[in-house]
């Protein structure tokens, strides 16, 4: 319950970096927000085509990826809890599991994309311009949004790898874990975006 005006404290740097991370998350949310605006408008205009196109996506793969991300979101939160409890070993294991889940997500995505690309459904392909407008826009948006999301997954993985090493060599410790906390926040952001992407892309039958 420490009030705001009481801001000359030892740990104010950690608070600043956490606030900074939240602000950065806001910009990321609005970055995807722009795409969600585009999505909602085209879905409004090409309702039928979007429904048909989404049948091309496998709900199972989407669901597996959702579960992988939710699970990894929990483990990274647990890593932070472990760090706060001065349990370095558990923290390392939890970050490791998170990274593994991220990998599962990416491998899954790779096969999903690969399947589409095999069928010639990718931006710039010869087939795409032959589709009608609604289908074309759906798949363009699909690749654009999931691609940008996958890029964020990769960035998050890099960040968590750095955290993993820093926990290992002790530069993140129970008295100073702002980096791990911010890494975890970033990872939750990736999860947050997927929570909206999944129903909007996969579940409009």
């Amino acid at each position: 319950m420490s009030e705001k005006h009481n801001h000359v404290e030892e740990h104010r740097d950690d608070e600043a970096s956490k606030l900074g991370m939240w602000l950065f998350i806001f910009t990321e949310l609005l970055l995807f927000g722009g795409l969600f605006i585009v999505y909602s408008i085209f879905r409004h205009e090409y309702y039928q085509a979007f429904r048909e196109s989404s049948l091309e996506l496998s709900v199972t793969i989407g669901a597996i990826n959702t579960i992988a991300l939710l699970f990894s979101s929990m483990t990274v939160a647990m890593a932070l809890t472990a760090m706060q409890k001065n349990d370095k070993k558990t923290a390392l294991i939890m970050i490791g599991i998170t990274l593994l889940m991220a990998l599962v997500f990416l491998v899954n995505k790779y096969f999903e994309w690969g399947h589409k690309i095999e069928h010639g459904l990718y931006p710039g392909s010869a087939l795409m311009p032959l589709l009608d407008r609604g289908h074309l826009l759906y798949f363009s948006l699909y690749f654009f949004m999931t691609g940008l999301h996958a890029f964020h997954i990769i960035v998050g993985m890099v960040l968590l790898f750095i955290c993993l090493f820093k926990v290992k060599n002790g530069s993140i410790h129970p008295e100073k874990y702002a980096l791990l906390e911010n890494g975890a926040l970033y990872w939750h952001l990736v999860d947050l975006i997927w929570i909206f992407l999944f129903p909007l892309m996969y579940l409009i039958s």
């Binding site: 030892e10 740990h11 950690d14 699970f71 929990m74 809890t81 409890k85 008295e175």
Partner: peptide
């Protein structure tokens, strides 16, 4: 003094949230 500006959430709570 201590750096614990952040709340510690118990494992069990996190598990329930996942569920």
């Amino acid at each position: 003094m201590a750096n614990n500006v952040s709340h510690t959430t118990e494992y069990r709570t996190l598990g329930k949230v996942l569920l």
